[in-house]
């Protein structure tokens, strides 16, 4: 039994949570479209759900040629075993050359189960993908060892070539309602939907635990803050800018702020429009989590702090002096009458 073929389509495992397609799905269809055009293949999007809150056809599926829309009550809550079985069944039917999924808690769980089932390789957490001109193989690039080095990986003799891709790596294409994709609703064997894992419930995080990955502005603090209380200053600035608060590993390890705020390779990867780092020296581990931000501001009293090298704006001085000045300046700008 085979699960892939060298000339097969590119398959995207989309992510659907609570009946809503996650944005990262479109980051993958967009990139897959570009790769597929280079080698003249189809892009097939697999969506597993128990129905959608909004009709997903409205935006043209952003790059996908075909959509495999699998709906079943067992897919209402996340169930890794059902998803892996459905994915394997779809691999058997579609024989893709490449399979991409988001490197989220769900993709990073379903993909290894399915890859082992298909007896093929899997590359985790890619931050760059391209097609190797001579071979047509997928070149999968990922950070290794705390982001110190990048490794480019190939799956030469196994099919399909499988990879998970870190969210916020590729820009999603704009929705295009005029674009049409063929939507198929295949009848899969009942066995696919039987699971030893019982999904019992889901409790979403409360509003104030908003995901900093969704923010346009992230104000982050590190060792230089010296204590938990100093974060209130960053919260104030973040609130003024309708942003979120981030933190370095040191700040989280010291329990000044909770783990959901941690930015870096062992925390969240963020790519806001503006990232403000206060009292963060800039370990490679931290920078791997924010280096793709659009505009980086670093505040540090150490002129040699490595973070200054990756900053677009370096404010060298005491953060307890500089941050209040920024807060005051932002307030003034907000109160100015047009």
């Amino acid at each position: 039994m085979t699960f892939g073929s060298a000339n097969g389509p590119l398959l995207i495992l989309g992510e659907v949570r609570g009946g809503v397609i996650s944005g990262v799905t479109w980051e993958l269809t967009g990139k897959a479209r570009q790769l597929a055009d280079e080698v003249d293949r189809e892009v097939v999007l697999l969506l597993m759900s128990n129905g959608f809150k909004n009709d997903p056809a409205g935006d043209g599926y952003r790059g996908a040629d075909r959509v495999i829309d699998v709906r079943h009550p067992s897919l209402d809550l996340f169930n890794q075993e059902v998803q892996a079985k459905v994915l394997l069944e779809v691999l058997r039917n579609e024989q893709p050359s490449m399979v991409l999924a988001p490197a989220t808690s769900s993709g990073r769980t379903v993909m290894p189960i399915a890859a082992a089932g298909a007896k093929t390789g899997l590359t985790a957490d890619c931050t760059w993908l391209e097609i190797e001109a001579e071979t047509g193989l997928l070149l999968q690039t990922r950070p290794a060892i705390g982001g110190n080095v990048m490794a480019t990986i190939r799956t030469p003799d196994h099919l399909p070539q499988m990879a998970t891709v870190r969210p916020r790596t590729f820009a999603p294409p704009e929705p295009d309602p005029d674009r049409k994709a063929d939507v198929e609703k295949p009848l899969l064997p009942d066995e696919c939907f039987e699971s030893r894992v019982e999904a019992l419930g889901f409790t979403p995080h409360e509003e104030d635990a908003v995901n900093i990955q969704d923010m346009d502005v992230v104000v982050a603090g590190g060792k230089g803050l010296q204590k938990a209380e100093s974060f209130s200053m960053l919260r104030e600035l973040a609130a003024l800018l309708k942003g979120g608060v981030g933190a370095s590993r040191v700040a989280v390890d010291n329990r000044w702020i909770g783990y959901p705020h941690q930015v870096g390779l062992s925390g969240k990867v963020v790519a806001p429009r503006v990232y403000i780092a206060a009292g963060i020296s800039g370990s490679v581990q931290h920078m791997a989590g924010m280096q793709t931000s659009e505009y980086v501001v670093a505040i540090n009293k150490d002129p040699e702090a490595p973070i200054f090298k990756t900053a677009d704006l370096a404010l060298c001085g005491d953060l307890f002096d500089i941050v209040p000045r920024i807060i005051a300046a932002v307030r003034r700008a907000k109160e100015e009458v047009r």
Partner: peptide
């Protein structure tokens, strides 16, 4: 192994933007 590392390289992180300190901080 099903996968092979074909290349390792060191990422470039440099932006080196404008720097302000002391009386230029404002």
């Amino acid at each position: 192994s099903a996968t092979r590392v074909v290349k390792v390289f060191y990422p470039s992180l440099t932006r080196d933007g404008a720097r302000y300190s002391g009386k230029d901080l404002d």
